[in-house]
Design a protein around this nucleic acid. Structure first.
Lengths: 255, 255
DNA sequence: AGCGGTGGTTCGATTATCGAACCAAAAATG
DNA sequence: CATTTTTGGTTCGATAATCGAACCACCGCT
């Protein structure tokens, strides 16, 4: 079963990039013999590497190669990066491209600010749509029913992020009307961000563009000054995404 | 069989990033029903994306996420990139980091030159060790038996790259003695490159560092002037790779 | 209408997967 | 420092998923 095999890969994260056989089998809830056989296949194909000294397993360089295939296809290097970098140099803060994928938001590209205190997140981090400005601005532009089911999920798992259903729904409505969203110290105490949604050719939300930085530097007053450059970049990126179809799962969120 | 499933992914390259079901099944030599089921699992897990309009399959954004896990673990961003960028700015040409993986060399990082005519290759491209300067300089530092088997493979498949076994072996010996290698117009007519090998803590070859550019600009005379900066960077990268173990398959080439 | 192509599905024979029980060796444990 | 626990890894028969011929419906082209 391929899905079982692929679920192994999800265990390898920036925080936890290296796994022992038994630990991994416990993490994914499969017997260690199964995990061992799967890992052996992954190793043979070059997708997972076993450190010969520690015997621990980690992701192999094949992922660097394949990610480049995706990024070339998306023309990230040619078209999107320059825009993010422009925003970065004009604002002096970190710029984050978030993409909607299967009920979650994922950071797909981060342009770090040159300053010593920067946005500490890294590419590949996923979280539910109800946490963080960059994610909420996406959620706000999804259909009402999808918002409701995602709020339900949030109330079950991490109700501290939501509060009451009514206030959260109103907040989303408010975000949608404004077309952008600023938060300070919501997810992480010292982090502030301003986010603006991105759309595809059919005007469906696809992700968001954010400027993030330390809360003491990126005040709301300061962030609002960034709106013109954000809106300009939003238009440019929307134009790109009206031609290039982004390979993320969001069919079920739209129809 | 997971290996069969993973062999699908190898079909997705920069040149060929998008596949129809039937085309792909012919490419990998599996019945289309099998490929269909495998693709369905990949899609479900987010590793492959099906373009809803063309129905064609392509790699999903999960690969961008996982490649970031690898690169963070390797501290590519913190330590290796700055070195490559320094070489790039000092030489004004493209800089390429090639890694030895399973009888092949793979481009893992490329820093493009600012000039309009640049090195046209992209990350993820793999080729046998007997083609190109960056690969030959690796081959030259592998054990004699490994060299012989790889030369055998080359003579069978693409003897035009080798010529006679004796002259090729001598060339490799020569490269090893010099510790670097320059070529112009060998693999591609207009491309020249100078390469220097990289080693891990046990002094085994791990990859190579190259400066590449158009042959008319990157003459041998010009390339030799880059040797000091290349050797300095070689030392720095070796130092990094003596601490961080690179996740590439080369055990069988060394013992 | 007919042809050859596409993506996708069904179902019984086949074949790989699963996991308890098993090593040897390396860490903890007292 | 002998004992217990835990590690990565293997074996093999019962079991459950994979395989693929034959099958749709659909599309584009003569």
């Amino acid at each position: 079963m391929v899905i079982k095999a692929l679920s192994l890969l999800d265990a390898f994260t920036v925080e936890n990039p290296s796994w022992g056989l038994r630990d991994l089998s416990r993490e994914v809830g499969l017997s260690h013999t199964v995990v061992h056989r799967l890992l052996k296949s992954f190793v043979e194909s070059g997708y997972i590497f076993q450190n010969p000294e520690t015997k621990k397993y980690e992701l192999g360089i094949k992922f660097i190669e394949l990610s480049n295939v995706v990024e070339e296809k998306l023309q990230i290097y040619d078209w999107i990066n320059p825009i993010l970098e422009k925003v970065g140099s004009e604002t002096g803060e970190s710029v984050v491209l978030t993409i909607l994928d299967n009920n979650e938001g994922a950071f797909v590209k981060i342009v770090e600010s040159g300053k010593s205190i920067k946005f500490g997140e890294s590419v590949g981090r996923r979280s539910p749509l109800y946490v963080g400005a960059s994610h909420k601005v996406i959620l706000a532009h999804l259909p009402q029913e999808v918002q409701d089911t995602i709020i339900d999920q949030g109330l079950e798992k991490q109700s501290e992020y939501i509060g009451s259903r009514e206030s959260f729904s109103e907040k989303l409505q408010h975000i949608k009307n404004k077309g952008w969203f600023y938060t300070a110290g919501e997810t992480y105490n010292d982090v502030a961000a301003i986010s603006i949604p991105l759309f595809d050719r059919k005007e469906y939300v696809l992700g968001s563009l954010s400027v993030a930085g330390p809360a003491f530097r990126l005040t709301e007053e300061h962030a609002i000054k960034m709106l013109p450059i954000l809106k300009e970049s939003q238009r440019e990126i929307n134009k790109i995404f009206s031609k290039v179809i982004f390979p993320s799962r969001r069919d079920h969120l739209i129809n």
